[in-house]
Design a protein around this nucleic acid. Structure first.
Length: 422
RNA sequence: GCGAGGGUAGUUCAGUGGCAGAACGCGCGCCUGUGGAGCGCGAUGUCGCGGGUUCGAAUCCCGUCCCUCGCCCCA
């Protein structure tokens, strides 16, 4: 029988992969909770309409896994979390004590062509601050991200967070006569600049309805790295970021505008400095999302970070953690067959004392058993063979130092507790 | 949906018409109850699948499936 293919775009998590996923989850939990954020999660399945309400065109029509359930309702595997969050907030309505600081780490699905940094099934960290519309709130989110980066060893010369503000951009565009219907078009245009050649981009701009002088104005605007100084909101934002210790990662970048329609203020994304990867995280302020799903308007700000690019960037910078896969503290060697062997008895005794213990499940050559302990980086090995049983002793080997001692079996727990032999 | 490159041992790959290979990993021995380093020995396999050309195909031709990378979109 031929091997059945895994579903395209999914990943198998072997123990070593699972160790990384769990490590990432822990790092995310650590950074989030340091700022008082509470963990939550939405369902993995949602009604399709929830996404149709906002995320709009591409994400819903082209990239969602959609299927009818047995009652005929159209169901989607969640492609993002923000609409669920908005729904959950709207549902509880006034019962919630604002502001809300919520975070989540879980799986998402997008039906797209697999490529570097992108898979169809991926994990994402979402974190949001809801109920406040101050620049300080936006700055806090970036500070949480910066905390994670620092904790895992990603320094400011490895990655940058590029920030802009849509209200500022709107104001600037207004000055060159771009407003109304031309505004979203121009945002999309800005978003695509780095993916097109200058010539192609220019003709795309003119086709989109920009006049020649507006195009020139736009070019000038995208090169003005001081424009943020004209925005009180951004001045306040950068000041807060500095107080929060996050400014070392931050750059103002007028070309950052972001594709999603619901952003209203601050927008940002983190990229690796070398530019070898897609964005590590992206987010911003959305001030009327909750009302879209039927609640009272509540402002919010937050971002999402995918696990795939994050892992690639850690790897490239040589700071991906070397994680131990086996949880075992102590391996008990086995010499004899039979259910009542001393090996099993000792393993139970040590487990009752709170240690993580495994016994070698068959009496193979000792060499194999030690090799097994070595490969799994098990720090301690107990040898209990005919010699030990006859003299009522136990031998203990420290796999790191290589030292081995023999002592009375009755001393076992004390000797283990003291760990280092001698 | 469009474009490019691939598929040979567990893994990474070499092999372009004539015996199916290397490295790493794995197993065994040196070492009768002791891992990591070294040396020696050993096992690897539907050459993605189907068809065709040929005395002979991993190699050439046709078809097909799958993987990777890019475009689109995005974490």
């Amino acid at each position: 029988m031929p091997m059945i293919q895994p579903v395209r775009g999914t990943r198998d998590f072997y123990p070593e992969d699972m160790a990384f996923r769990q490590w990432l989850n822990n790092q995310i939990r650590e950074a989030s909770t340091q700022f008082g954020y509470q963990e939550f999660d939405g369902p993995f399945l949602e009604r399709l309409e929830l996404y149709a309400a906002k995320s709009g065109d591409e994400l819903v029509k082209e990239q969602s896994y959609v299927f009818p359930d047995r009652s005929g309702s159209m169901i989607a595997l969640r492609p993002e979390l923000t609409p669920s969050l908005a729904r959950m907030v709207a549902q509880r309505g006034k019962g919630l004590t604002l502001p809300l600081r919520w975070w989540s780490f879980g799986p998402f699905w997008r039906y797209e062509r697999k490529q570097k940094g992108r898979s169809r099934e991926f994990f994402q960290w979402n974190i949001d601050l809801i109920g406040v519309d101050t620049p300080e709130a936006d700055a806090e989110l970036v500070a949480v991200a910066a905390t994670l980066f620092r904790n895992v060893g990603l320094t400011a010369d490895m990655i940058r967070i590029k920030v802009n503000n849509r209200r500022l951009a709107e104001k600037q565009l207004q000055k060159i006569g771009i407003q109304g219907e031309l505004l979203p078009t121009t945002f999309r245009l800005i978003d695509r600049q780095d993916r097109m050649t200058p010539d192609a981009w220019k003709s795309y701009a003119l086709e989109s309805g920009l006049k020649e002088e507006q195009f020139t104005g736009l070019m000038k605007m995208l090169k003005d790295l001081d424009a943020w100084k004209t925005s009180p909101e951004m001045l306040q934002y950068f000041k807060a970021a500095e107080a929060l210790g996050a400014d070392e990662y931050l750059d103002y970048d007028p070309t950052i505008i972001r594709g999603l329609d619901y952003y209203t203020g601050t927008v940002y994304e983190a990229r690796d400095v070398k530019g070898n990867h897609r964005s590590i995280l992206g987010g911003g302020r959305y001030d009327d999302l909750v009302s879209v799903v039927g609640g009272n308007p509540i402002p919010g700000t937050g971002f999402a970070m995918g696990d795939v690019v994050f892992g690639l960037v850690l790897d490239e910078n040589g700071i991906k953690p070397d994680l131990r896969v086996s949880p075992t503290d102590i391996l008990i060697t086995t010499f004899e067959e039979g259910g009542e062997s001393s090996s099993i008895q000792i393993s139970t005794e040590l487990r009752d004392a709170g240690y993580r213990v495994e016994w070698y499940p068959e009496p193979v050559r000792l060499q194999r058993q030690f090799k097994y302990a070595d490969r799994n980086e098990i720090p301690l090995v107990i040898i209990i063979g005919p010699d030990e049983i006859e003299s009522d002793k136990v031998s203990l080997k420290d796999m790191v130092s290589g030292e081995q001692v023999s002592f009375d079996r009755s001393d076992l727990l004390t000797r283990i507790r003291n760990r280092l032999v001698g």
